[in-house]
Amino acid sequence: MARVTVEDCIDKVENRFELVLLASHRARLISSGAPLTVDRDRDKNPVVALREIAEQTIAPDDLKEQLIHSLQKYVEVDEPEAETVPLLGNTAAASTADSDADIQFDRMSEEDLLRGLEGLVPPAATEEDERE
C-alpha cells in the first residue's frame, strides 16, 4: 500500500499536533500487543496507526479518551454522597429525644489525669506470661 500522509488523516483529526499524539499513542498500543484493524503490509507501527486513523477503522475520539486515561495519575471516581446514618450505640439514645439534652460530660484537669496515671499498676502476670 502507498505511504499514508498527514493530508490523508487531517480531515479526521483537524489539529496536526493532536494527530501526532493520537497516532503515537496508538503505535504504542500496537507495540504492546493491541489487535490491528488494518493489514500490516510490512509497515511499522506508526504508519499502521496513521492508516487506521485515515481509514477510520479506529475512532479518534476513542483514542483521545484512551490517551487521556493513560496519562492520568489519579482517577476520580464519582461515588454517591454518604447518607447520615445514626451510629448503633446512639439508636437507644435517639429513641428518647429528651435524654439528648440531659447528657453531661465529666471534666478532668490535667493534674487529675496525671495523678490517676501514676496510680496505675501493671496487670498481674499470669502463668502463661511467666513461661514465655
Rank of each mutant, 00 (worst) to 15 (best):
M1S: 09
M1P: 04
A2C: 05
R3D: 14
V4F: 03
T5Q: 04
E7I: 00
C9R: 00
D11Q: 14
D11N: 15
K12Y: 02
K12F: 02
V13N: 02
E14K: 11
E14Y: 06
E18L: 14
S24T: 15
H25E: 07
R26K: 01
A27E: 01
A27K: 03
R28Y: 12
I30D: 00
S31Y: 12
S32P: 02
G33R: 00
G33Q: 02
G33L: 01
A34Q: 14
P35C: 06
P35G: 12
P35M: 09
R40P: 02
R40C: 08
R40T: 07
R42D: 13
R42T: 13
D43Y: 08
P46D: 07
V47K: 11
V48G: 04
L50G: 00
I53R: 06
A54S: 03
A54D: 01
E55F: 03
E55H: 07
Q56D: 12
T57Q: 02
I58N: 06
I58W: 04
D61V: 05
D61S: 13
I68T: 08
S70F: 09
Q72M: 08
E76K: 13
D78M: 07
P80Y: 04
E81I: 06
E83I: 05
E83Y: 06
V85D: 08
L87M: 09
L87H: 09
L88R: 10
L88F: 08
L88S: 08
N90L: 12
N90E: 14
T91E: 14
A92L: 09
A97C: 05
D98K: 09
S99N: 10
S99G: 04
D100M: 13
D100Y: 10
F105I: 13
R107V: 13
R107P: 03
M108T: 09
M108W: 08
S109C: 03
D112M: 13
L114V: 11
R115P: 06
R115D: 15
L117I: 14
L117H: 11
L117T: 10
E118Y: 11
E118N: 09
L120T: 02
V121L: 15
V121T: 15
P122H: 11
P123S: 15
A124V: 14
A125P: 04
T126I: 07
E127G: 06
E128W: 07
D129M: 10
R131T: 11
R131I: 13
